[in-house]
Computed example of a mutant assay.
Amino acid sequence: MGQSKPLRAKALIVEDDPMQREMISLLLEESDLDVIECESAEAAELVLERSGGSLVLMMTDIHLAGHMNGVELAYIAKKCNPDMDVIVTSGKPLRQELPDGAQFWSKPWVPLDVIREAERMSFAWNVAGKP
């Protein structure tokens, strides 16, 4: 019989640049998070509707493929799961207000900050006794 894989906390990465998306995913996977990747806010919205309650972290760029931007997506994420850690990033200044509890990280950010945030959220998820 095969062994079951323990459930891990999940993160959603929304970035239209494939290299950036892959780098963030690798950093988060090193922190024991399962990662779901999307290149548009519209695709991410579907993920949030289906499994937003099981996500502990969403990291999104402001400028994305499609019609919705990362700030608009942050509001949807917080509505789906108010406890989710939401990080919005951009190489340009933030021009829209973020929802309560969301953070803005100016690019370039430090990869170690991503790892620290992921480990903090993973630890909180495990301490909360999530299945």
Score class of each variant (00 low, 15 high):
20 Q>F: 11
117 E>F: 00
99 P>M: 03
11 A>Y: 02
81 N>G: 03
61 D>Y: 01
115 I>K: 11
68 M>C: 05
85 D>E: 14
48 L>F: 10
32 D>Q: 13
21 R>K: 14
30 E>T: 10
92 K>N: 11
125 W>N: 04
108 P>G: 06
110 V>W: 00
25 S>V: 07
59 M>P: 01
99 P>S: 08
126 N>K: 14
7 L>K: 15
115 I>S: 09
22 E>H: 01
15 E>A: 05
12 L>Q: 00
38 C>Y: 00
65 A>P: 07
68 M>E: 07
24 I>T: 08
126 N>M: 11
89 T>D: 04
6 P>E: 13
89 T>G: 01
15 E>T: 04
110 V>T: 12
5 K>V: 14
16 D>K: 11
80 C>L: 00
85 D>I: 01
66 G>S: 04
54 S>Y: 02
26 L>N: 00
71 V>M: 03
106 S>C: 07
126 N>E: 14
126 N>I: 01
122 S>E: 13
120 R>Y: 10
71 V>H: 01
105 W>R: 01
32 D>C: 07
39 E>M: 11
1 M>Q: 11
52 G>V: 09
41 A>K: 04
131 P>A: 13
64 L>A: 03
109 W>S: 01
38 C>E: 05
107 K>T: 06
89 T>Q: 01
32 D>Y: 11
61 D>A: 14
69 N>V: 10
84 M>H: 02
121 M>A: 11
15 E>Y: 06
28 L>Q: 05
12 L>M: 07
118 A>W: 00
10 K>C: 02
59 M>I: 15
56 V>T: 11
69 N>T: 10
21 R>I: 03
94 L>M: 12
32 D>F: 09
80 C>A: 13
56 V>Q: 00
68 M>V: 13
15 E>Q: 02
89 T>I: 04
84 M>W: 02
72 E>D: 15
117 E>V: 08
124 A>N: 06
108 P>C: 08
109 W>P: 02
72 E>K: 11
125 W>G: 03
19 M>F: 14
129 G>N: 12
31 S>Y: 05
54 S>Q: 15
110 V>A: 09
61 D>P: 00
45 E>L: 05
129 G>A: 13
56 V>G: 00
22 E>R: 03
97 E>S: 13
20 Q>V: 15
